[in-house]
Structures are given as structure tokens and as C-alpha cells.
Amino acid sequence: MYIEITDKTGKVSEELQQETVKLLNFAAGFIHLPDNKEMAVTYVTNDEIQAINRDYRGKDVPTDVVSLEYEPETIAFDDDFDMPEALREELADFDSFIGELYISIEKAQEQADNYGHSYAREMGFLAVHGFLHINGYDHMVLEDEKVMFALQEEILTAYGLTR
């Protein structure tokens, strides 16, 4: 999986950025995501994530991670349309981008301090949590929450990123 990392804060080490890429690729393999998928991770401040949270979720407060799942447009063709293979392959490429994550480094540090674990562990947790969201997992109802939270903990533990 291709992952584009952007650090708008200038405060996330190259090592942590690369570790995030490794962790998310591990998570992608864990849920059997096809190799051709792409996503983006952007590290931001509380002010920036508050604006994103307000604009996309209608919540005017800073949060730890915002996940924007990409849902490609459905393109319909007449039943008698004989699609050339080159066009079929080109259209398949549009389905490769799965979404983007915005992670507040300030919230990550605050939560790491509150939970008593490392900043790296919290950043990894937020990346996996957001990654699962853009792959269709949610925690709005208790049954879904149990599934998602168990899976994210299983991924983090298997990767070796424990509390």
C-alpha cells in the first residue's frame, strides 16, 4: 500500500513517520487489503484538526483523529457497451485511494500522558484507529465497537506496539 505522509507541524520525526507507514502496511496485510490501495496521513495541530472536525463532521472542537473515507463514484454504462481493457484498467485505478487521516499531535501527546503510555504508542493507536474507519469499521453501536476495538488492539499487539 502506498501511504503519503505530510507533517504540517514540522514536529513529527522522520523515524515516527516511517514507523507509521510500516504499521499501516502491517494493518493492511492484517485485514487482507489489496496491495494497490493508497491513503494519506497528515499530522496537524489542535487548531487545524478543530477546523477539519468542524468542516467535515459539524463538531467545532479539537479531536485526536479525523478519518475521511473515500467513496468512489459509481460509473454506469449501457449494457451493450463493450469496454476496452485499457479503460477498464484505468477505471480500476480510481478505486485505489481509500481515504485520509488527520492526526492531532497535540491531542496524541495529551492522551499518551493521560493513559500513561508512550507518544509513539498513541500515534500508532490513532493511525490504526483511523485506518480501520476508512476501511469500513465503526464504533457507533456497541456490537460494532467491540469488533473494531478488539481488531485494533489485536493489530497493535501483533505489531508489538503495546501499552
Rank of each mutant, 00 (worst) to 15 (best):
M1E: 03
E4Y: 13
I5Q: 11
I5D: 12
T6L: 14
K8C: 08
T9G: 12
T9C: 13
V12G: 10
E14D: 12
L16A: 06
Q17A: 04
Q18E: 09
E19V: 00
V21E: 12
K22R: 15
K22T: 07
N25L: 04
A27D: 04
A27M: 05
A27V: 02
A28V: 00
A28T: 01
F30E: 07
H32M: 10
L33N: 06
L33I: 08
D35M: 10
N36I: 04
K37M: 11
E38Q: 14
A40I: 07
A40D: 11
V41Q: 12
T45D: 11
N46A: 15
N46F: 10
D47P: 00
E48N: 11
I52M: 13
N53F: 15
N53M: 15
R54Y: 14
Y56R: 12
R57S: 13
R57Y: 14
D60N: 15
D60C: 06
V61R: 15
P62G: 01
P62H: 02
T63V: 14
D64Y: 12
D64H: 11
D64S: 15
E69Q: 15
E69T: 12
Y70A: 13
Y70L: 08
P72V: 12
P72N: 13
P72K: 14
E73Q: 14
T74P: 00
F77E: 12
D78F: 08
D78R: 13
M83G: 02
P84L: 09
E85H: 08
A86L: 10
L87T: 07
R88P: 00
R88D: 09
R88M: 08
E89H: 09
L91Y: 04
F94S: 08
D95I: 04
D95N: 11
Y102I: 00
I105W: 05
I105M: 05
K107C: 06
A108F: 04
Q109S: 10
E110R: 05
A112D: 03
D113T: 06
D113P: 00
D113K: 10
N114E: 13
Y115V: 02
Y115K: 10
G116K: 06
H117A: 04
H117I: 04
S118N: 05
Y119R: 14
A120M: 01
A120W: 00
R121E: 06
R121A: 07
E122R: 08
M123N: 05
G124P: 00
F125M: 10
L126H: 03
L126I: 02
A127E: 03
A127D: 03
H129F: 00
H129L: 01
G130K: 04
F131Y: 07
L132R: 03
I134F: 07
D138R: 11
H139A: 02
M140G: 13
M140L: 12
L142K: 14
E143Q: 08
D144T: 09
F149E: 11
L151I: 06
Q152E: 15
Q152C: 04
Q152D: 14
Q152P: 01
E154A: 15
T157R: 14
A158T: 12
A158E: 15
A158R: 15
A158H: 10
L161W: 01
T162H: 01
